[in-house]
């Protein structure tokens, strides 16, 4: 393809980690994404040491205090306080724990289910395919939030059930995307070559199909981390998600919605936190998709 490629083709097999790091720092979006994601994860882990206040401490004297750079704000509450006088910055720092955990692990759970279903139904077809695709249709017919509400109502609210419920309700989109990709790839000659060699089905699925469909999964998955964080906040708002002493960005956001006109900082800063972390995850996902494709790696 390009001449420069054939020049340094003899390069020895680097250790994978080294190669990835090299590729990471060559890509600007990858570096930015990694920086954002790593800092948010660090914030979540180090929350007890980073937060200036306890997230639950109510201060009835200092309610609706604006951020420090505005009139009426001061240094003790950098991003201001909410309607109960709780420190917004501390709540955001603590909220990152739940939001990241729910957002990422439920997407991973939904992804694992969806990718497996998509790979197997697409490859084998037949009854298995019909069964799962009709099941997927029935999932699509019911709004996600309604399904999640029912399941949370049955199993009772809580962090773990929330993750499970969000994971189980969201597998459909991955299954459909992966299945359609598999349908087109399995007709290509390299799959037929593997079959004619006598490669086992399981090996064809995981060694030939999987690497070729995973990049579409990454793109969709990183985007849906954002919608999952929002979905979690809606469920928490309805009282079926995170239960109060725990905080998540979603709960802070929905708490602050009522005061948008008077105290904009209540909802704005958790919203910004969601936006920035989602951007970081998308950047990282883009980079991951690129390095998984040997054609874009120079």
């Amino acid at each position: 393809m390009s001449r420069s490629l054939s020049m340094h083709g003899t390069a020895k097999k680097n250790s994978k980690m080294k190669r990835w790091m090299k590729l990471l720092f060559r890509s600007k979006t990858g570096t930015v994404g990694l920086f954002i994601v790593v800092s948010i994860v660090l914030v979540a882990i180090l929350a007890p040491w980073l937060a200036p206040h306890e997230p639950q401490t109510i201060d009835p004297v200092n309610t609706h205090k604006p951020p420090m750079w505005m009139e009426g704000g001061d240094r003790s509450n950098i991003l201001g306080t909410d309607n109960l006088g709780r420190d917004i910055l501390s709540r955001i720092i603590y909220g990152s724990q739940v939001s990241l955990l729910v957002g990422i692990s439920s997407v991973v759970l939904a992804g694992v289910i969806g990718v497996l279903v998509g790979l197997f139904t697409g490859y084998f077809g037949g009854f298995l395919d019909t069964f799962f695709m009709r099941l997927a249709d029935s999932f699509l017919a019911i709004p996600n939030i309604l399904l999640a509400l029912v399941m949370l109502g049955v199993f009772g609210p809580g962090l773990l059930t929330l993750i499970l419920v969000l994971g189980v309700t969201n597998w459909v989109q991955y299954a459909r995307i992966i299945r359609s990709e598999v349908l087109s790839i399995k007709e290509r000659d390299f799959i037929r070559a593997a079959k004619s060699i006598g490669v086992k089905h399981r090996h064809i699925i995981f060694s030939h199909l999987y690497p070729n469909v995973i990049s579409s999964f990454i793109v969709v998955a990183t985007l849906s981390v954002a919608s999952t964080i929002i979905l979690e906040s809606s469920l928490s708002f309805l009282g079926l998600g995170i239960q109060p002493p725990q905080v998540s960005w979603g709960t802070i956001l929905s708490d602050g919605r009522d005061y948008l006109a008077t105290s904009w900082w209540l909802a704005t800063f958790p919203g910004l936190a969601i936006t920035i972390s989602v951007l970081g995850i998308i950047f990282l996902g883009d980079w991951l998709r690129d390095i998984l494709d040997p054609r874009t790696v120079k």
Partner: peptide
């Protein structure tokens, strides 16, 4: 049959689709 496949092999027409781009 899977073992027998070793005895009969095929060369495909389109060399662009017969090789897995990820390998």
């Amino acid at each position: 049959l899977r073992r027998r496949r070793a005895d009969i092999q095929i060369i495909f027409q389109d060399p662009f689709s017969s090789l897995n781009p990820r390998k």
